[in-house]
């Protein structure tokens, strides 16, 4: 079962699957963009600005999900001393950083026409900013610390500590009064948005997931070769 986690198996998987993933990505991107920008209806309250949701929400989900994986991988790497998990986390971090930045910037651009401000220090926005800073810290530590084992140990701790922020982001709209609206889609209840808006949202999310996977496989290959070269 854990054979897939072996570096060589994963390396071969990366070599064989990138081409097909690129084709799936291109297809879902075209379908997703046509639905998001042309066919999906405008919101009765937010008008056309709702189209920003199709970039903002999937980016936020991916940024959160990637940090969750980084946290779990860091935990496994630190406790069980399995090196490949820290390589997974290291390869994923820049992707999560970019998606968290996209989430913050597109959120601000959506916020101005709907709330009248680009930024507010409320629970959701501030906790998302903490996520961006956690990513920046994680990525910077890997590039600043030259000793591999020390960098691995410290980034593992950052990854685990950063996990605390994930439930804060998720429940910030419930715990505090925020400008940000509560989640329209949850795992435990039926979505509160219409299917004509849900479809492009899920397609764009799938499209971003595929792109993340492509970039992760490229970065993973880089990290494995880099590890091999430096070991020699």
């Amino acid at each position: 079962m854990f054979g897939i986690f072996k570096p060589r198996t994963f390396f071969n998987l990366a070599n064989n699957s990138i081409f097909w993933l690129k084709i799936i990505f291109a297809f879902t991107l075209v379908v997703g963009l046509v639905l998001a920008l042309v066919l999906s209806p405008i919101d009765y309250l937010q008008k056309d600005t709702v189209r920003i949701m199709y970039v903002h929400v999937p980016s936020s989900w991916i940024a959160l999900f990637i940090f969750l994986i980084i946290g779990v991988s860091s935990f496994i790497s630190l406790i069980f001393k399995i090196k490949v998990f820290s390589i997974y986390a290291k390869s994923l971090a820049p992707i999560g950083l970019v998606f968290s930045l996209i989430s913050i910037v597109t959120g601000s651009l959506w916020g101005y026409p709907t709330w009248g401000t680009f930024w507010s220090w409320d629970g959701r926005l501030t906790s998302m900013l903490v996520l961006v800073l956690s990513y920046v810290l994680y990525v910077s530590l890997w590039s600043l610390i030259k000793n591999y084992n020390l960098a691995e140990k410290i980034t593992n701790i950052v990854g685990i500590v950063g996990l605390i922020n994930i439930p804060i982001i998720k429940f910030s709209v419930v715990w505090w009064n925020t400008l940000h609206q509560p989640a329209s889609i949850t795992l435990t209840a039926a979505p509160t948005i219409h299917s004509s808006m849900l479809a492009p949202l899920l397609i764009m999310f799938f499209c971003f997931c595929i792109l993340s996977l492509i970039i992760f496989l490229i970065r993973y290959k880089y990290e494995i070769i880099n590890f091999r070269v430096n070991k020699k």
């Binding site: 600005t49 903002h56 651009l109 959506w110 026409p113 792109l211 492509i214 970039i215």
Partner: peptide, 23 residues
Amino acid sequence: MGGYGFYIWLSYAFATLSLIFLY
């Protein structure tokens, strides 16, 4: 986009350029 084109296109452009840069 009903007068909101600047915000919408800027959002999509930022996302596109960031992801192209990362790739």
